[in-house]
Design a protein around this nucleic acid. Structure first.
Length: 361
DNA sequence: TACTCGTGGAA
DNA sequence: TTTCCAAGAGT
């Protein structure tokens, strides 16, 4: 009887070593670590899903300056939320964030304090719910983000494919078993910090690792192989025609994309499949043939995404004397004709600009 | 279960 | 130039 009780009530070797390391080497100056209330931790955790810390920081700062609390976010228009998100990717996160803010504000403004209550929120899964409970409320709830997966897989020698269900079950069990009853917030930050700064995917610093003494992957000289990589097929190629339609005074015609799929809810130049004709596009947007001043096709270019290649065939349709100035920023920002400020984005500007310049140089 | 959803940095 | 993948979740 005594062994089980002792294991549950006292931090194990793993958690003890990790916490001691965290006190000396952990990250403590990240923006969401100051005033870590549920709202700030929630927003940061959503932004950090599949997104590196350095990319998130400026977005988090701008977001908090504009939406300091859940009521401010709930009162905003989706367009503005997406605008502050544009460039960060995975826009369903922003739509879910806005939807959840409205739900919470309508329910009085307080976040759920249970795992189940948090997981019921759109965009909040098991790991994000665990992170909110641990980081904002110091509750002993496990997380299993990419860092924790790597640390636990190596420490316990879990060598199955990192996305397989059996592997995830095993890793979640280890995550639960190591999470201490006290200092849950520090422990949660610690396992992420170890994974991010020492137990990295490539070139891990095992010589400085507080867990090295009992790390199974290190003992077996298999640190480089664990976690094993999921096998992938070849990327498919998708084709699209992009219509850049300009009208006076120097405005671009855009369409708001539906709230699903790629760039859902953002504004972009009309994109059609490869068989869409000029006549069909003009008809759809109410453009009379007589008003078309110029009609050109630019060379196609490829933009590679994580999961597919997109071969884009740019088309340019000018409706009056003034040519449209396409912003030469680092991103392809388009303009919502109903609003003064830029909203949304499409593919990076560079590739399309280079393509158009070959025609309009 | 397997697929979808983005972007920027690194190799 | 291409591939990989990082504080995952939804369907």
């Amino acid at each position: 009887m005594g062994i089980r009780t002792a294991a549950v009530n006292s931090p194990d070797w793993f958690a003890g070593k990790l916490l001691a390391w965290f006190d000396r080497h952990g990250r403590k100056g990240l923006p969401w670590q100051r005033n870590p209330n549920a709202y700030r931790v929630w927003v940061s955790e959503i932004m950090l899903q599949q997104t590196q810390v350095q990319a998130v920081i400026p977005y988090f700062e701008r977001f908090m300056a504009r939406f300091p609390d859940v009521q401010a976010l709930a009162a905003a228009q989706l367009d503005e939320v997406l605008h502050l998100w544009s460039g960060l990717g995975y826009y369903a996160r922003a739509r879910n964030l806005h939807r959840t803010a409205k739900l919470i504000a309508a329910a009085g403004g307080a976040f759920p304090t249970s795992q189940a209550g948090l997981e019921a929120l759109p965009g909040v899964g098991r790991s994000t719910a665990g992170a909110i409970l641990a980081l904002a409320m110091d509750q002993p709830t496990a997380i299993l983000d990419g860092n924790a997966k790597r640390v636990l897989a190596r420490f316990h020698g879990v060598d199955g494919p990192s996305n397989a269900a059996a592997t995830l079950r095993t890793l979640w069990a280890h995550a639960e078993a190591h999470t201490p009853q006290t200092r849950a917030a520090a422990y949660t930050q610690a396992i992420m910090d170890l994974g991010a700064t020492l137990c990295t995917r490539r070139g891990p610093g095992c010589s400085a690792c507080p867990l090295a003494e009992r790390c199974m992957a290190l003992a077996a000289n298999r640190v480089a192989e664990i976690p094993s990589r999921p096998q992938r097929g070849a990327k498919p190629v998708r084709k699209a025609r992009m219509y850049v339609i300009s009208a006076p005074p120097g405005a671009c015609l855009l369409e708001r994309r539906p709230n699903f799929g790629v760039w859902g809810g953002l504004w972009s130049p009309p994109q059609r499949n490869a068989d869409c004709s000029w006549e069909a596009v003009c008809a759809e947007f109410g453009i009379r043939a007589a008003t078309v001043a110029e009609r050109r096709t630019a060379p196609a270019f490829r933009h590679s995404f994580t999961h597919f290649h997109l071969d884009i065939e740019p088309h340019y349709l000018r409706l009056a004397e003034q040519p449209t100035a396409i912003g030469d920023g680092d991103r392809f920002i388009w303009y919502n004709l109903d609003r003064p400020q830029p909203v949304g984005l499409s593919v990076p500007a560079g590739a399309l600009l280079a393509s158009l310049k070959e025609v309009f140089a």
